[in-house]
């Protein structure tokens, strides 16, 4: 197989993967975020304490998570047909991908939101805020760096899942690697696909970490926009003066294990 033959295949597969992962991530976030927050709020000692609701949601999440993805695709076929009218294309893959990712993301959200200091919740309550205010002004903004990391993890997991979407004819990089690379012995194509996947995942991970760190820094360090560590040598001197002088705060020290040296230029 020549490069000119491979190129359109790879391009199409890339777009398919991005399309599936993009939409299913969006749906997972929209569905998983409220679910995760609800898990925290309804838990014992939570603002909307309701043990029954908590147990039910928790169980549903556990069952959904324990299901192998390939089984989930099959199990959801009827549902998928009902939603998108078919069971064999990109759109059809998005349904099980999203449904598989919602409970996964919800658990990550739960962990992230649980980390928020209860004192902050109390502070807002003492100002007369209701539960919705607490969620909107405290729980989500304060856990945003962790939530972004959770989204990153979810995207990476979804890319992995999307390899199985080939079974319903949805295409994508994983499908390409198996059908052409493995089954037709196009080893070269397989390795290129694997390399592309590795690069895509690295880029997503890097972007996610960068965004999360930027937000964390805002809370735990200088108000300046985050800078790439790669650029540390070229960092402008003004940024160096903006670095706050404080080393005593253990929380901050924790939050920024790799802060730049103050003398940047």
């Amino acid at each position: 197989m020549t490069w000119s033959e491979m190129q359109p295949l790879l391009e199409q597969a890339c777009w398919d993967t991005l399309y599936m992962v993009g939409w299913s991530t969006l749906i997972a976030v929209v569905g998983g975020l409220p679910l995760g927050i609800l898990l925290v709020l309804t838990d014992r000692g939570g603002l909307l304490q309701n043990v029954v609701v908590n147990k039910v949601i928790g169980q549903v999440v556990n069952i959904a998570r324990s299901m192998p993805f390939i089984i989930l695709i099959v199990a959801l076929m009827d549902f998928t047909r009902w939603v998108v009218g078919t069971t064999i294309n990109r759109e059809a893959a998005i349904v099980p991908l999203a449904i598989g990712a919602i409970p996964f993301f919800a658990r990550l959200v739960e962990t992230a939101v649980r980390e928020v200091d209860h004192g902050l919740v109390e502070a807002v309550q003492s100002m007369g805020g209701n539960t919705w205010t607490v969620v909107r002004k405290v729980l989500v903004p304060e856990s945003l760096p962790s939530l972004i990391s959770s989204v990153t993890t979810t995207i990476v997991v979804l890319i992995g899942y999307s390899a199985m979407a080939g079974t319903v004819g949805a295409g994508g990089l994983g499908d390409l690697a198996i059908r052409y690379g493995y089954q037709r012995f196009e080893t070269e194509l397989m390795w290129i696909t694997v390399a592309i996947l590795a690069v895509v995942i690295s880029v997503i991970q890097f972007a996610g970490d960068y965004a999360a760190r930027g937000l964390h820094r805002r809370g735990g360090g200088s108000g300046a926009a985050p800078r790439l560590r790669l650029l540390r040598g070229k960092a402008p001197a003004t940024a160096a003066t903006a670095e706050p002088v404080k080393t005593t705060d253990p929380v901050t020290a924790d939050a920024e294990p790799e802060r730049e040296p103050v003398k940047a230029s």
């Binding site: 603002l47 909307l48 004192g119 902050l120 502070a123 007369g128 405290v138 304060e142 809370g219």
Partner: peptide, 25 residues
Amino acid sequence: RAGKELRAARSRIGMVFQHFNLLSS
């Protein structure tokens, strides 16, 4: 859960905490 009236009453009582409880974001 705190009802509307209680929340209104709370908003007229200021509270200061040992650990400040400021939103870091």
